[in-house]
């Protein structure tokens, strides 16, 4: 499983990054080396080993269904790069 430039192009769309041709080349070269390095995990026998997604094994952590204060709208929208008095704004998403 060696990483190709085509993989990198596909991933750059999945990850929503625009990369120039030069960046794609460099990224392919650098990622290929890292991916090559992590491949060493294949030699580890993980037969019957439970995956460990969390550092602590805790479960059933809940909150009560109790109202908490929401942000005032201006505070919620304050950091938006483009907004009007009520909403965030983006280029038309029709047909997306």
């Amino acid at each position: 499983m060696s990483l190709t430039r085509a993989d990198v192009e596909k991933v750059s769309l999945l990850g929503r990054l625009r990369l120039s041709e030069a960046e794609l080349d460099k990224m392919t070269e650098q990622l290929a080396r890292v991916v090559g390095y992590v491949e060493q995990l294949r030699e580890v026998n993980t037969e019957g080993v439970q995956p460990m997604a969390h550092a602590l094994d805790m479960h059933n952590v809940f909150r009560d269904d109790a109202l908490a204060a929401s942000l005032p709208r201006d505070a919620a929208l304050a950091n938006a790069p483009k907004r009007d008095s009520e909403c965030y704004r983006v280029p038309a998403v029709l047909g997306e």
Binding site: V38, V44, T46, V49, Q50, P51, A53
Partner: peptide, 9 residues
Amino acid sequence: LKALKVRRL
């Protein structure tokens, strides 16, 4: 997934 298993080890 493989990494999560090695993490356990």
